[in-house]
Structure formats: structure tokens, C-alpha cells
């Protein structure tokens, strides 16, 4: 198992900042790298894969520096977002070539290429030229070249782009599996629900800065300036709202569009929820539904980025 450490990593393109003072540790399991377009995700991947050096700071894989250290690159698998295929080669030839570049001998490279084509669902198209592949199939081949040498660390930059629904499910399952096995997996996307399908551990980048990292609902709890939104559906709307409005923890309260729907904002969910539970029990108010509406990834993302 592998651990990737970034210490005060920054990268500039002239006066434009790519990544700004990022310090974190990537551990086994799946981590979602989130951020809007231009947030610095691809730059971060390039630094993590040794494609370019950080201007300041240090990136290490199990203590060994990554930049200018190709000897450890076979421990890394990288699926870039850019379209970068040799149209004349078949899927099998491409993967064999990539495996040999990783340092496998010819026989192993061929064997691994065929196995990997099976893993990404391209066995039947193995001997067709990549030029004849659909966008989704190309994406699968690209995914294949990153996993075929069974690396310890896997970086997937926008792996779902161009995939059909079936391909997306397969990819999510594959990434899940690698995470469960104990591989250190980082998946980037600017589409939140894609990340939500794969993991609830995230790193949030914006303008090159690491805004937050950790489990989604834990991050949400740390965003104190944004009141937590609670949605309750009850048949005794008036009685409940009259009682709740007396709570000092409640910031706003309003009726929702749905029948019996009450929308509450609170700054102190920790004391609000026990009080609410007591109220419901003591006054015997029937509750049909209760949920917090803004501790999902979308809300966290919006609070932090916008």
C-alpha cells in the first residue's frame, strides 16, 4: 500500500497560479478531487505523476521524491483527461506498448494487455485499430493503460468523460474495487454526482488552492457560517412551527411548497436536533419526514467554491 505526500506544493505558469501551497497526504482508498474547470486538478495530477516539478514544496511516494525519479513510476498509473491515442494501433498493441514502456517484458506485456482489455470490456475489440473505436471505447483503453501494470497509486483525470451509462457503471465499479483493495486512488471530476458515486472522501480545489479535504459531511459541519437546512414534513405544521420558532438556535423558518413541509435554518445543529427530538416526543407531534438538505457534496461544493 502506498502513501503520497504533498508538502507546501505550488506551481505557477508565469504569473498564473496552477496549484497554491497544497499540503495533504493521499492514503489508500478512493479520494475524489473536485473543483470547477481551471481549479488546478490537471496541474496537480501532473505534479503527482512526475510530469512536471513543483515550483516549491515536495511530492513523495512512500518517502521517495516523485519528480525526476522514473524508477518509481511503474508504481503509478495515470489516466489523463486528454485524448491521446495512436489511431493506427489496435487496442491490444497499444496496451502491449504501454506495458512495455512500464518495464514489462514482451510476454508479460502481451498477457497483461489481454487481461486488461477484458477488465475494461474490450476483449472483442482488442484487435481493431483504435481509430475505429468510439469515444467511450477510447476512454476504456486509456483507463486500461493506467491499470494494467497493477500500480499502487492510481490517478484518474475525468475518467467518465465520453463513457456511455454502462461504461460509467463499469468504471465506478472498477474504481471502487481498486479502492477497496487498498490502492491509493484519486479521481477527479467537475461533475459532483460522479464523485459521489465513487467516494465520500474528497479534496476540493479552487483557484489552485485546497479548500477542504476529508469526508463530505464532516467538511459540511466545519462550514459554520452557512446555517444548516432542515426539512420536516408533518401533518401538524402550525403546532410544530409555533414551538420551533421559540428555539434560539433557529435562524429562519418558512413553509415549503409541499403540503406540510417546513424548512428550517439553524446555526447550531448540535443543540437543535436534541431539542427537536424532545419536542416531538413530549408534544407527540407526528413527523412524516425529516432530513438535512445541504450536507451533500453539491451543497458543500457550492458553499466553498461560490
Amino acid at each position: 500500500m502506498a502513501e503520497v505526500s504533498l508538502q507546501n506544493v505550488s506551481k505557477w505558469y508565469g504569473e498564473v497560479i496552477g496549484v497554491s501551497d497544497v499540503t495533504t497526504v493521499l492514503r489508500p482508498g478512493v479520494t475524489g478531487l473536485l473543483g470547477p474547470n481551471g481549479a488546478g486538478k490537471t496541474t496537480l495530477f501532473k505534479v503527482l505523476t512526475g510530469l512536471m516539478p513543483p515550483d516549491t514544496g515536495r511530492v513523495t511516494l512512500d518517502g521517495a521524491p516523485i519528480w525526476n525519479n522514473p524508477a518509481i513510476y511503474h508504481r503509478i498509473g495515470f489516466c489523463p483527461s486528454a485524448e491521446n491515442m495512436y489511431e493506427q494501433l489496435t487496442g491490444f498493441e497499444f496496451l502491449t506498448y504501454m506495458a512495455r514502456l512500464n518495464g514489462m517484458n514482451d510476454a508479460d506485456a502481451r498477457e497483461r494487455a489481454m487481461t486488461t482489455l477484458g477488465e475494461v470490456g474490450l476483449t472483442e475489440a482488442a484487435h481493431k485499430p483504435i481509430g475505429a473505436y468510439s469515444k467511450g471505447m477510447r476512454q476504456r483503453v486509456k483507463l486500461g493503460q493506467s491499470i494494467q501494470h497493477q500500480p499502487d497509486v492510481l490517478y484518474f483525470d475525468e475518467p467518465m468523460s465520453g463513457l456511455d451509462p454502462l461504461g460509467r457503471i463499469d468504471t465506478v465499479n472498477l474504481i471502487h474495487r481498486y479502492g477497496k483493495e487498498g490502492k491509493t486512488v484519486v479521481v477527479s471530476s467537475h461533475i459532483l454526482h460522479e464523485i459521489e458515486e465513487m467516494t465520500n472522501t474528497i479534496m476540493l480545489l479552487n483557484n489552485g488552492m485546497l479548500l477542504a479535504e476529508g469526508v463530505v459531511h464532516e467538511i459540511r459541519e466545519l462550514i459554520e457560517e452557512q446555517p444548516r437546512q432542515v426539512r420536516i414534513v408533518t401533518r401538524e405544521l402550525k403546532r410544530l412551527s409555533n414551538r420551533i420558532i421559540e428555539f434560539p438556535e433557529v435562524k429562519t423558518i418558512r413553509f415549503g411548497e409541499e403540503e406540510g413541509e417546513l424548512l428550517i435554518q439553524t446555526h447550531s445543529p448540535d443543540s437543535f436536533f436534541p431539542k427537536l427530538t424532545n419536542l416531538i416526543l413530549e408534544d407527540e407531534i407526528p413527523i412524516d419526514e425529516m432530513s438535512t438538505t445541504d450536507d451533500d457534496l453539491q451543497s458543500v461544493f457550492e458553499y466553498l467554491v461560490k
Binding site: K46, T49, G50, L51, P70, A71, I72, Y73, H74, I76, F78, P80, A82, E83, N84, M85, Y86, M98, L101, N102, G103, Q145
Partner: peptide
Amino acid sequence: TDRKTKALILYLSKPI
């Protein structure tokens, strides 16, 4: 061709 297809990324992320 490698530059056009951005394949250099694939090469240089390998142990070369």
C-alpha cells in the same frame, strides 16, 4: 504526432 495527440503525457508518466 505525439504532441498533436498529447501522447507525451502517457510516455512521460511511465518509467522513462
